[in-house]
Write a protein that binds this DNA or RNA. Structure first.
Length: 176
DNA sequence: ACGATGATGAAC
DNA sequence: TTCATCATCGTA
């Protein structure tokens, strides 16, 4: 079972898409070949009300893709050295996105993009096979009870209410 | 605990 | 045009 995720999957609220992305595979194709990585950690950033979201301060050159159709990549540069990979979610015009924070064997959003060779070059491109970066359902099912929900990382500036939202989703470690 | 390192956005 | 800040990471 191998299905490339498209518009229908991403055209839902970020808080719904984020946990649903756990167990899906981020697939990267480069001249060196193709590699699939199971997503293990994701964070939701909702529309303009979410003070932790880049979209909360309105549309700018950087976040413009968030205001467009779902299923496109939003890649931005932060702290002078890290590229962050997000996928745009929700209806066209409703700015929201999911930050991919980790895959199997790679923990941390900055490490993820570095290891897969992802940069702002991918910003605004659709998540599809044609762009060399897409997401597949390969039949792995993650139960709700396997998902840990925590507040998002590094968003204290957003204020108590928004910083506390349990919108970070992580696949729990399986105890052997 | 802290410095790296540069784009971003808001203030001036 | 300046300046504080930043959805982080590696080294200590």
């Amino acid at each position: 079972m191998r299905k490339i995720l498209g518009h229908v999957f991403f055209a839902r609220p970020a808080t719904v898409v984020a946990p649903d992305l756990l167990g899906k595979f981020l697939v990267r194709r480069t001249p060196d070949g193709e590699a699939a990585h199971m997503i293990t950690e994701a964070e939701a950033y909702e529309g303009h009300d979410d003070r932790a979201s880049h979209a909360s301060r309105g549309r700018t050159a950087r976040n413009a893709v968030m205001f467009g159709p779902p299923g496109r990549w939003y890649v931005y540069f932060v702290y002078g050295m890290h590229e962050m990979l997000n996928v745009v979610t929700g209806a066209d015009g409703c700015p929201s996105a999911v930050l991919l924070r980790g895959v199997e064997g790679i923990v941390g959003p900055g490490r993820l993009t570095k290891r897969l060779g992802i940069s702002r070059t991918e910003n605004t491109l659709p998540a599809s096979k044609a762009t060399g970066l897409w997401i597949e359902d390969r039949g792995v099912r993650i139960m709700m009870r396997q998902i840990e929900k925590t507040p998002r990382v590094g968003v204290a500036y957003a204020g108590e209410e928004w910083a506390a939202k349990p919108w970070r989703f992580v696949v729990k470690k399986v105890i052997p």
